[in-house]
Design a protein around this nucleic acid. Structure first.
Lengths: 110, 110
DNA sequence: TATAATTGGTTACATAAAGTAACTAAAGAA
DNA sequence: TTCTTTAGTTACTTTATGTAACCAATTATA
């Protein structure tokens, strides 16, 4: 009987990316620090879940949260080195999608 | 106001990988055709969900299902070219995990 | 002074997805 | 006939996600 198990580190990494929205958030932050409200608009995620995901990502050291006490307050989320180093992963997903996903797949008119 | 939207093809690809277990199933099948029961054991997924995921993957052209009418019946799941071409994505996730994930990861995604 | 506007959230509740365990079909073996 | 094996399915519980209303802090406006 084959008792081999999938590499725990790989499993941990993929469980991170398997969480809904997390991949998109990281992908979006690759283009630079962004505010909470901007992320909700661009990604199409609710405040509730974005808040939860960003807290997780912060706790895992992928994202930093910076408060700028302006008026109104500005809070920016930015990838750490750990977070930014997922760029090659995102690039490969991008490459794959350009080759294998139809352009008109899942295009909605809201 | 910034009306830019994330690339629909990328979004489609990442929504595929964001589905729980899907990434692990593809990763596991990269090492060759495998049977239903073997996948459940190695991945640690229930029959119910594995069945559902494999149907999805087949419908999306990532996996093929082959019946060998032996005794007992043998059914093998195998990546198509489309499925196998996700290898570079998996490789990059693997690379990242080796660098950034602790061998004994204690951070939970709650 | 009271009201409004803006950002960055949180709360409460409904719905969808995932986890669990028992069950089934088919087909040959005992 | 009953048992075993593979490959699932069904019924039910628990968890995650979607939705919309609400809140706190801060400053501008009537």
């Amino acid at each position: 009987m084959d008792t081999s198990v999938i590499c725990p580190r790989f499993e941990s990494a993929i469980s991170l990316l398997s969480q809904r929205w997390t991949g998109l958030i990281i992908y979006q932050l690759l283009s630079g620090p962004q505010r909470f409200s901007h992320l909700t608009e661009v990604i199409g995620i609710s405040g509730r879940l974005l808040s939860e995901r960003l807290k997780n990502l912060e706790a895992q050291g992928l994202v930093t949260r910076t408060v700028y006490p302006e008026t109104p307050v500005r809070i920016e989320y930015e990838l750490t080195e750990k977070g930014f180093s997922l760029k090659p992963v995102m690039d490969e997903i991008q490459n794959w999608s350009q080759v294998w996903i139809e352009p008109i797949e899942t295009v909605e008119t809201k």
